[in-house]
Structures are given as structure tokens and as C-alpha cells.
């Protein structure tokens, strides 16, 4: 079917384009931030994977990297930042604390940021090595490539 051929090819192209032009917003709070800094700098160089452009405004970012512990006090901030990002948006939880609360199972820490916002990729480790962060980014890129993108006209049809 020619129509299917065109849409799937276009979807693949769009996925390809999106996965290599991620603007990321680093939501850095704690220890893992040091490893994120290593990953972002010249030595490990996140730029090689098409995510070199760090945007410090959530409104300009496609990807939020939640790096480090999110406490109960910080939870509304993370929620606000996530809500400010424009669709399509993706989330990577970097480090044990962001994934599950890690070693801090106590009164102050949120037990995993998936209790606050939806998460696409979990990167474990306390802290994860820069290679792990890059691996998580590659996994997300694979996910973006395969994602079905919501077309404007599709939306119109269904509504």
C-alpha cells in the first residue's frame, strides 16, 4: 500500500531526526551530577551521540535527565519543570536515587521519580559511570526511533 509505505518511511525519518537532535535539560541535584559532568565534557563527550546541546530552560528541551536524589521538598519543582516541557518529551532517571530512592529509604527522599513523572529509561548505578549514562541515552534513542509519532491529521481523524 503506497500510503502505508509513505507514512512508515516518514515516521522512520522523523524518528531518526528526533533521536539525534535531543536537547537535554539536566535536572542535577546530587552525586550523579559529577558523573553527568564527566559524561558531558570532552573526555566522554555526550555530543558524539547527538545530545550535546544542553538547554537550561525546560521550555526548550526534549529530554530531561533527572540526575541525583529527588527529595520530598524538591518533588514539586521537578513536577513543575516537567510540566513546562513541550511535547514530545522524554525522561531519563539517572542513578539509583532517581530510579528507586537508592540507599536513602527514609522520610526525606522520594522513592523513585516515577512517583512524580513518567520515566522512559532508568539508568541504575550509584553513581552510574559516564558510559552507563551514554548507554541510557542510546537506549532512549532506540526507543525514539521505534516510537509511533502522533500525526496531526491522525489526531483530527480520531477526534
Amino acid at each position: 500500500m503506497p500510503g502505508n509505505f509513505i507514512t512508515t518511511s516518514f515516521e522512520a525519518m522523523l524518528g531518526w531526526g528526533r533521536k539525534y537532535s535531543l536537547f537535554h535539560y539536566p535536572f542535577i541535584t546530587a552525586c550523579c551530577g559529577m558523573e553527568y559532568m564527566s559524561a558531558a565534557c570532552a573526555h566522554f563527550d555526550i555530543d558524539r551521540f547527538g545530545a550535546g546541546w544542553t538547554r537550561f530552560s525546560p521550555r526548550q528541551a526534549d529530554l530531561i535527565l533527572v540526575v541525583g536524589t529527588v527529595t520530598q521538598k524538591l518533588a514539586p519543582v521537578l513536577r513543575t519543570v516537567y510540566d513546562q516541557m513541550a511535547e514530545p518529551k522524554w525522561v531519563i532517571a539517572v542513578g539509583a536515587c532517581a530510579v528507586s530512592g537508592g540507599i536513602y529509604d527514609n522520610y526525606a527522599v522520594v522513592q523513585g521519580i516515577d512517583q512524580i513523572i513518567p520515566v522512559d529509561i532508568f539508568v541504575p548505578g550509584c553513581p552510574p559511570r559516564p558510559e552507563m549514562i551514554l548507554e541510557g541515552l542510546l537506549a532512549l534513542q532506540g526507543k525514539i526511533q521505534k516510537e509511533g509519532h502522533d500525526w496531526r491529521w491522525k489526531k483530527k481523524k480520531t477526534s
Binding site: 520530598q72 521538598k73 518533588a75 514539586p76 513536577r79 529509604d105 527514609n106 522520610y107 526525606a108 522520594v110 516515577d114 512517583q115 512524580i116
Partner: peptide, 15 residues
């Protein structure tokens, strides 16, 4: 007498 895991979330949590 405050419990170690007695959390008081500021915003409603998912799940």
C-alpha cells in the same frame, strides 16, 4: 520517636 520512613509528600504521588 519520629519514624525513619514516615514520609510526608508535598504533592500527591503517582501509583
Amino acid at each position: 520517636d519520629y519514624g525513619l520512613r514516615h514520609r510526608q509528600p508535598r504533592i500527591p504521588l503517582r501509583k
